[in-house]
Amino acid sequence: MTDETNLIAWSLEEVADRHGDPTAAVYDRLFAKSPEMAELFIGDKTGAARGEMLAVVFQTLLDFSSEGAFGANMVRAEIINHEGLGVPPGVFTTFFATVMETLRELLGDDWTPPVAAAWDDLLAGLETAIHSEAAA
């Protein structure tokens, strides 16, 4: 595991240890930022789909930060899957940033410059992957 992957993993684990499941916090932030996204979850009455999606996102983030093939392939596949729902690729950039912002808020002062740098690198790599898939 790289240092970056370790910091990403640490931030995810630390939030879970301190706050439990961050699903509600992530989606509350997403829907506040992009209210139109809430409409896509109208059938998710219990929040189970959101929780499941976020769990896959966490796996994807960890793999992507370690330069594994799963993360990059998952991003590509989900961009294609979500096209049928009318979700433009740019929403993925917004969503990944929303996850980071939520974790940063929940970790407060423990969001150190090395953790921020690891997330900045991760988000930059994801944005490149998203835009290259959108251009394909």
Results as ranks from 00 to 15, higher is better:
residue 109 D to S: 08
residue 4 E to F: 03
residue 95 F to H: 02
residue 69 A to K: 15
residue 38 A to V: 05
residue 52 E to M: 12
residue 69 A to G: 02
residue 119 W to F: 10
residue 89 P to I: 01
residue 81 N to F: 02
residue 20 G to C: 10
residue 123 L to K: 13
residue 24 A to F: 03
residue 20 G to W: 07
residue 92 F to I: 06
residue 62 L to Y: 04
residue 17 D to M: 07
residue 118 A to E: 03
residue 77 A to L: 13
residue 63 D to G: 09
residue 57 V to R: 01
residue 89 P to W: 00
residue 112 T to M: 13
residue 55 A to H: 14
residue 105 E to P: 00
residue 99 V to G: 04
residue 95 F to K: 01
residue 45 K to A: 05
residue 78 E to I: 11
residue 42 I to E: 13
residue 23 T to H: 09
residue 107 L to W: 08
residue 30 L to T: 05
residue 7 L to V: 12
residue 129 A to G: 07
residue 98 T to D: 01
residue 133 E to I: 09
residue 50 R to H: 02
residue 103 L to Q: 14
residue 9 A to R: 12
residue 121 D to W: 00
residue 13 E to R: 11
residue 127 E to Q: 07
residue 23 T to R: 12
residue 107 L to F: 08
residue 43 G to S: 13
residue 98 T to L: 03
residue 102 T to V: 06
residue 129 A to F: 00
residue 51 G to H: 04
residue 125 G to P: 00
residue 127 E to S: 08
residue 134 A to P: 00
residue 103 L to R: 11
residue 121 D to Y: 02
residue 117 A to E: 15
residue 20 G to T: 11
residue 41 F to V: 11
residue 119 W to D: 04
residue 114 P to C: 08
residue 32 A to Q: 15
residue 31 F to H: 12
residue 32 A to E: 15
residue 103 L to A: 11
residue 114 P to D: 05
residue 65 S to E: 03
residue 92 F to V: 01
residue 133 E to F: 00
residue 124 A to V: 10
residue 71 G to F: 01
residue 38 A to R: 12
residue 74 M to W: 13
residue 105 E to C: 02
residue 110 D to W: 11
residue 48 A to S: 09
residue 93 T to N: 05
residue 79 I to R: 01
residue 36 E to L: 08
residue 90 G to C: 09
residue 2 T to Q: 09
residue 98 T to P: 06
residue 89 P to A: 00
residue 76 R to K: 10
residue 8 I to S: 03
residue 78 E to T: 15
residue 119 W to H: 09
residue 109 D to C: 02
residue 9 A to M: 06
residue 123 L to R: 15
residue 133 E to D: 07
residue 42 I to S: 12
residue 16 A to E: 15
residue 40 L to R: 14
residue 109 D to F: 03
residue 87 V to G: 01
residue 108 G to K: 06
residue 131 H to K: 14
residue 29 R to K: 13
residue 14 E to F: 01
residue 104 R to M: 08
residue 57 V to G: 03
residue 73 N to Y: 06
residue 2 T to D: 05
residue 26 V to I: 12
residue 105 E to I: 12
residue 56 V to C: 09
residue 32 A to G: 07
residue 37 M to C: 07
residue 72 A to S: 10
residue 57 V to Y: 01
residue 22 P to G: 00
residue 118 A to N: 07
residue 123 L to V: 14
residue 96 F to V: 06
residue 55 A to P: 04
residue 49 A to S: 09
residue 96 F to C: 05
residue 37 M to V: 13
residue 57 V to K: 01
residue 79 I to C: 01
residue 108 G to Y: 02
residue 85 L to E: 03
residue 58 F to T: 14
residue 136 A to M: 10
residue 131 H to I: 04
residue 29 R to N: 05
residue 41 F to G: 04
residue 91 V to E: 03
